[in-house]
């Protein structure tokens, strides 16, 4: 637009340069707090935690006892009254407390059978909240699925669900991928789990369970885990050119990939500029989002 500037034109408030853009970088939702812990349910971790907690409790009690001894000795030296002996704290219970389902030792026949069939490829088996969990080595997932599907006493014919979780705080892995298998004939369910590090390409389950096709595409779309031998490893929910993987923990809820779409056919930006000028005349500052 190279129009001659009319000197008599009324002084217009300066139109904001560029289109109206919400400053996503400054939005409160943009700040990402990465998790500090690895909430991976596991019997081994739980047992270790229990042992550690018991040890810590014991150490605290011993320290209290020692403190008491010291205090008693001190009081004796100073001639004061002896302090009260410490009482070991008992966890308080009331009706409102939740009966949290803790992981327990695997007693189920299916899990034991699975361990028997797979041998040392099984990393861990346990039960929690009435659900069977079997964690296998990440290279052996296809073999494990095959056993689950074909073994006569297991017969998990249907892959009901497949999903993955991001654990940025973990050291030797980044994702857990879970397979929820269902035996339609026996009415049983089983969760198969593998832990994969960043960049590892696990085998696709498509050859065994065709239903894994879209689920694995969704996992790739949302978390960026690629699967080997998948027929069509493309994004499914997000557009093809989307940046980043939304369900990773470092992905903010506002900001990445968000775009302002100008629906008007305004390639030269003329309409936009006119609208800005109009807004300026009316004294509306489009720059300031109302939400803040």
């Amino acid at each position: 637009m190279t129009e001659p500037i009319d000197p008599q034109a009324p002084a217009m408030p300066e139109a904001p340069t560029g289109p109206y853009v919400y400053d996503y970088m400054a939005a409160p939702n943009r700040q990402v707090v990465l998790p500090k812990t690895v909430p991976l349910p596991s019997l081994r971790t739980y047992q270790a935690e229990v042992v550690t907690a018991a040890a810590a409790d014991e150490a605290k009690w011993q320290k209290q006892l020692a403190d008491f001894e010291v205090a008693k000795a001190k009081a004796e030296v100073e001639g004061k009254d002896a302090p009260k002996p410490p009482v070991r704290a008992v966890p308080r219970k009331d009706d409102n407390d939740l009966k949290t389902p803790w992981p327990t030792e695997a007693k189920d026949a299916d899990l034991l059978k699975l361990q028997e069939l797979l041998g040392d490829k099984v990393e861990e088996i346990f039960e929690q909240a009435g659900e069977r969990v079997c964690q296998v080595k990440k290279e052996a997932v296809l073999e494990a699925l095959k056993v689950c599907r074909d073994a006569a006493s297991l017969k998990y014919e249907m892959l009901a669900d497949q999903s993955a979780t991001h654990y940025p705080a973990a050291k030797d892995f980044a994702f857990s991928i879970v397979y929820h298998l269902t035996s339609v004939s026996r009415c049983q369910r089983l969760r198969l789990r593998i832990l994969v590090p960043e960049g590892f390409i696990p085998e696709s389950a498509c050859s065994l369970y065709p239903s894994a096709n879209w689920m694995e595409r969704e996992i790739y779309d949302m978390l960026g885990i690629r699967f080997a031998n998948h027929p069509d490893m493309t994004r499914i929910l997000c557009p093809e050119d989307w940046e980043g993987f939304p369900l990773r923990k470092e992905y903010p809820t506002v900001g990445l990939g968000q775009r302002d779409i100008d629906f008007r056919d305004d390639r030269g930006g003329v309409l936009n500029r006119l609208a800005m000028e109009k807004a300026g005349q009316m004294g509306i500052n489009l720059k300031q989002p109302k939400a803040d």
Partner: peptide, 17 residues
């Protein structure tokens, strides 16, 4: 049911169909 005002979970995973 009687539940606390703020629910704080333990490490657990659940698939409920």
């Amino acid at each position: 049911a009687k539940i606390p005002k703020i629910l704080r979970s333990e490490v657990n995973e659940v698939y409920h169909p």
